[in-house]
Amino acid sequence: MTDATEQEPNQEDLFEHFRFVASKGQEPLRVDKFLMNFIENATRNKIQQAAKKGNIWVNDTLVKQNYKVKAGDEIKVLFEHPPYEFLLTPENIPLDIVYEDEALLVVNKSPGMVVHPGHGNYSGTLINALVYHFDNLPNNSSERPGLVHRIDKDTSGLLVVAKTEAAMTHLAKQFFGKNQ
């Protein structure tokens, strides 16, 4: 069975990968050519494919590859998957869980384990392990599920992780909310 009602994708469901604002002096230019100039490693073919799939938006409206970019236009490239740096692959890494209940857990982090993905560390982090072992961890503003505080990579020891939004807010206030 085929789905005949091909719906326009909803911007809210997509993840922003690139965003550019055309400068004041921008001469009218095809959006695919415009993006070629700004995105590293982009090919015209890839950009046109993206346009066909409905990934290119200008001023919050879906555009085709031949759309002419004008001064002040806001050009966004959106995809269904989160940007690579936030793409969390669940990994079956054993964790030393000291305590766990409905609201939170306390982990004893081994030395050498990075807490969250970032520059150069996209796998093997505590977060990769957490998303494997636990579903629906709350997201804080920086896309680090459950994380309340951090420990440096080469430091070992205890770390509390929130399992609900409410616990996250409560704990964050306790660790960072005191006259700071």
Partner: peptide, 16 residues
């Protein structure tokens, strides 16, 4: 082979 630092004790008020 790392800095000699360990987060030994952690205390907090349970959110619930």
């Amino acid at each position: 082979p790392r800095q000699a630092l360990h987060a030994k004790t952690l205390g907090f008020q349970h959110p619930v």
